[in-house]
Design a protein around this nucleic acid. Structure first.
Lengths: 106, 106
DNA sequence: AGGAAGTATTACAGGAGGCGTATATACAGT
DNA sequence: ACTGTATATACGCCTCCTGTAATACTTCCT
């Protein structure tokens, strides 16, 4: 499975969204995706792990999952070739600029 | 099928890449994806049509397919929330800037 | 009208992916 | 050691996707 297929699944995108806020133990992710059973979530996490979109760190009997967003660059690169084709691409770009300036004070 | 699933398929990304260069009749696309049969390509085109990523225009017995890249904004928007998490996001952004300035003289 | 070219649709088979239930594994606390 | 908690794996089922082959539809040309 590649990154494109990995993010094609809505539940997996939801997991990534949750991990974008902060890292979380698996159980917390299971609690949030309450329409799915624990094994289902665990399997989605495995897939995200396999494509490198998340990292796991053991913490006692827990597993702490964390986002590794840089694997999304593959998609970013593919999609960037198309930006010039949609009408107001400069607007989107400017929005991005102001957004990153606000939110990443590093 | 949504846009995320549509672009998860490598052949469909290849079709979009070909249509990004210029619009093309279906037969030309079939010729380019010579690992697939004509019906297979035709169905991929149908899916791309259904999610709005391409448009069709009849030209006699031909069908001319054209890209509608603005439907990719959905993915762009989702992924933009993650850009701040990968290290050198400004580099990628600057690359994009110079690239679009070179390539879109409109 | 009839045949050829271009494209779409249908029918069918194979395979992959997702889900839940049940089970296994690992660690923690007593 | 035993028990409970946290997570992962195994298995069976079902659905959906993809591919090919065959067929239908439409337009063009003579």
């Amino acid at each position: 499975m590649d990154v494109f297929e990995a993010i094609a699944e809505p539940s997996r995108r939801e997991l990534l969204d949750l991990l974008a806020e902060r890292e979380r133990p698996a159980g917390e992710l299971v609690a949030r995706l309450d329409r799915l059973t624990q094994p289902a979530v665990s399997r989605h996490l495995r897939i995200l792990r396999e494509v490198g979109l998340v990292e796991v760190r053991p913490d006692g009997q827990r597993r702490i999952y964390a986002l590794r967003a840089d694997r999304l660059i593959e998609i970013e690169n593919w999609i960037s070739r198309y930006r010039k084709y949609w009408p107001r691409h400069l607007d989107a770009l400017e929005q991005h600029l102001s957004r990153t300036q606000e939110e990443s004070p590093e």
